[in-house]
């Protein structure tokens, strides 16, 4: 029972900290808003100026919510990929799925859809097509007979990632008019987020998340290894395909608004696993909270530290996550799970 209590405590603390972070992110930024004003806005007191109200409701609030969705999505997708591949070095960014989604978006733009069309919900569809095609290609490349060895999967993913990044760079050079925006998007940025972005992402995100939640127990069984999982009555190939598809869809939906933000899908599931253990029924909700919180902090830093200029948040997450990845590589201890 003590473990049960501990888990409840962990969740409680996570939620409280997240609310505090969210609240803080509302009042800091390129223009400082008095926290009292924020409180009174939340309590629907109209004693604040119209411009402050707009900053809060139309700029910061959607951005905070979107940062949370993107961070949570990447972390959940990362956990799922890590469980399916049974390797903690896996992340949507590393195995090329982010690049695939990004390429899908770039192709859509190149085919004549204006950058402002980013607000339309067809973009995640392109991203999803890109992501799923990438997963499919990587899967086919990596397959040896009927099996999917981890090593070939990683290598195929890294190779695809390189190729797709070049494709994106090439498309970018061809369309120079929106270069800065594209570069920012490519590096991963939540600048200019609006409610319509959230509207665009949310249906895909929730649909994929629902599927993953449905399969949480199967994810645990998959961790035992594919052979053992099959002996325990799991239809391994079908489960893998469904889960890879859902995790790709989550990745695609968030990449279509944020670009490729690296390392969240790697680092956050890891740290969460250290705290709560490998059972996905407990892990996935917490990793979503942590991922959302982490990206929220990183994004708030990205728009604050060099204000009024904005940094692409991908730079910050990569600076934080890269060294952690190296640390993992160097420290191949058995307890990385």
């Amino acid at each position: 029972m003590t473990e049960y209590k501990k888990n409840i405590l962990v969740y409680l603390v996570a939620v409280i900290v997240l609310i505090l972070i969210g609240f803080t992110a509302l009042f800091i930024g390129s223009s400082y808003i008095n926290p009292i004003d924020v409180v009174s806005y939340i309590l629907s007191n109209n004693q604040i100026s119209a411009s402050t109200a707009i900053i809060i409701s139309e700029i910061r609030l959607p951005r905070i919510i979107l940062a949370f969705i993107v961070g949570a999505g990447l972390a959940v997708a990362g956990s799922v990929f890590q469980a399916i591949i049974r390797n903690p070095m896996v992340d949507p960014y590393i195995i090329g799925i982010s690049a695939g989604a990004g390429t899908g978006v770039m192709v859509a733009l190149f085919l004549g859809i204006e950058i402002s069309v980013l607000n339309l919900s067809s973009i995640p569809v392109f991203a999803f097509i890109g992501a799923v095609s990438t997963v499919f290609i990587v899967y086919q490349l990596a397959k040896v007979g009927k099996k999917l060895p981890v090593l070939t999967f990683l290598l195929a993913g890294v190779a695809m990632s390189f190729i797709l990044n070049s494709v994106m760079s090439f498309l970018m050079v061809l369309r120079t008019e929106n270069l800065q925006q594209l570069v920012y998007w490519l590096m991963g940025s939540l600048a200019g987020s609006s409610w319509s972005d959230i509207q665009m992402v949310l249906p895909y995100f929730l649909a994929a998340l629902a599927v993953i939640v449905f399969y949480l127990k199967d994810l645990n069984i998959l961790l035992l290894g594919e052979e053992s999982a099959a002996h325990l009555g799991l239809n391994v190939e079908r489960t893998k395909i469904i889960l890879l598809g859902s995790a790709s869809l989550i990745t695609a939906s968030v990449v279509s608004v944020s670009g490729s933000i690296g390392f969240i899908g790697l680092v956050v599931p890891h740290i969460t696993r250290m705290i709560i253990g490998p059972d996905h029924r407990k892990l996935i909700p917490l990793t979503a909270l942590f991922g959302g919180g982490f990206l929220l902090v990183a994004d708030t830093a990205a728009r604050t530290i060099m204000a009024p200029m904005e940094l692409p948040v991908g730079i910050i997450t990569a600076l934080a996550g890269g060294p952690y990845f190296i640390h993992l590589l160097r420290n191949k201890s058995k307890n990385i799970w």
Binding site: L223, G225, E227, H231, L232, G277, P278, W337
Partner: peptide, 29 residues
């Protein structure tokens, strides 16, 4: 899975479930 159980050659489990959870997974079918 209800008829036949298999103990594979490699029983290395590289993630840290506790013993009870691992055995309970046998009830999955």
């Amino acid at each position: 899975a209800k008829k036949m159980a298999v103990v594979p050659q490699n029983t290395e489990v590289n993630f840290n479930f506790n013993v009870y959870d691992i055995i309970m997974m046998g009830r999955h079918p």
